[in-house]
Design a binder for these strands. Structure first.
Lengths: 200, 200
DNA sequence: TCTTTATCAAACAGGGTGTTGATAAGTCAA
DNA sequence: TTGACTTATCAACACCCTGTTTGATAAAGA
């Protein structure tokens, strides 16, 4: 679990195992990766692997926890003042950290990534930053292409909430909710960009 | 792949296998489910499983494809006219279908669900419906709790797009984009709900 | 230097995997 | 319905990966 008080040997073992694991993850799905495979690539005994992790998925979990811990660390460095301008720097820091660890982050956050990890990241960011955000003006037209991605995946969250609430709301209500959410957002979109641009 | 021209035996085999698979999926993660386990529960020979599917994940894929095909069928029944009111019925249909197949849908769409499947569903809905949506009024305040889910997961899509574009945009730009997307939406949220309604 | 402990090779039972040829069930035409 | 043809299902097989244990070795830390 901890990594600070780790032996020098342990640090090496975990490092090469992680490197081999990521290399394999870039080639194929985690379900197709065997412990034996990881250890052979890293030149580490299989028993040593089991001394640290239960299986591939536990290994993946620990990698994710380490990432989240570091992201939180980056966030905490800005907690002192809540000014909007500083908040922007804060989010920038996160993206910077993701870029630094692009190899693993791309695996976790991209198309075939881990939804649960993504939610954990955004819960972190959301609660710390976006909650106490201040309005600071109109949206820039350059962001147009991101609005689609935003609204699209935003719908996923609505569905998940619905399912988690055991579908108490009627399908009709959900239909209207989705409609309004997307319509209102696109209305906003239209009223914010009146330069004469089109998207898609 | 096809299911219409299947043998009577094949239909039975696939049915009981699917049922056992879903039952197991409700208990534990797909990575912890063995082919042997599925077949024993379904009382089907393992070789028979391999005659139809490569592994658990291929099995899951075929189940998802079947779901998507049916959802698309539900959508196609409404393609004739594009009126907003009818579009609402259309989305309602989807939610209705999801509710009918709640057992598997809850597995696929909920917290620990499959992000790729979710995106496929919403790509389907988005392109067919939300693209040519018409503004029809202000949002109801009853949807408030869904707005958070919406904005939260909406951010995921932005990140994914960024990663898929090989992070061409600078972290700074991304920071500002996220900030504006969420800020603008919350501004809208504030200005749209000034009544005092509740629903449940 | 001395103590601690992580890594290793080897070996093990156990279980899951993927493929074989034989058997039984389904399909369709007469 | 019968019979012939087709094909899905099955039991059994050899193989590989897993997860754990052993005691020996050597590297780390104090």
């Amino acid at each position: 679990m901890g990594s600070k008080k780790d032996d020098r040997r342990v640090r090496y073992t975990k490092m090469v195992l992680k490197d081999s694991f990521i290399t394999l993850l870039e080639k194929k799905d985690i379900s197709k990766i065997s412990i034996k495979e990881i250890c052979e690539d890293a030149d580490i005994n299989r028993a040593t692997f089991y001394a640290h992790y239960n299986d591939q998925y536990d290994f993946m979990n620990q990698i994710q926890n380490e990432l989240l811990k570091n992201i939180e660390k980056h966030l905490s460095a800005f907690v002192q003042n809540d000014l909007p301008i500083v908040l922007a720097d804060m989010v920038e820091q996160i993206f910077g950290y993701v870029k630094e660890n692009a190899r693993i982050c791309k695996l976790l956050l991209s198309e075939r990534g881990d939804l649960n990890f993504q939610k954990r990241v955004f819960m972190l960011v959301y609660e710390k930053i976006i909650n106490n955000i201040a309005r600071d003006g109109a949206i820039s037209k350059a962001d147009a292409e991101y609005i689609h991605a935003f609204t699209l995946t935003g719908c996923i969250g609505v569905i998940q909430k619905w399912l988690n609430d055991d579908m108490k709301k009627s399908p009709r209500f959900m239909a209207e909710t989705i409609m309004k959410l997307t319509t209102v957002y696109q209305d906003l979109y239209r009223s914010s960009f009146k330069e004469g641009h089109e998207s898609r």
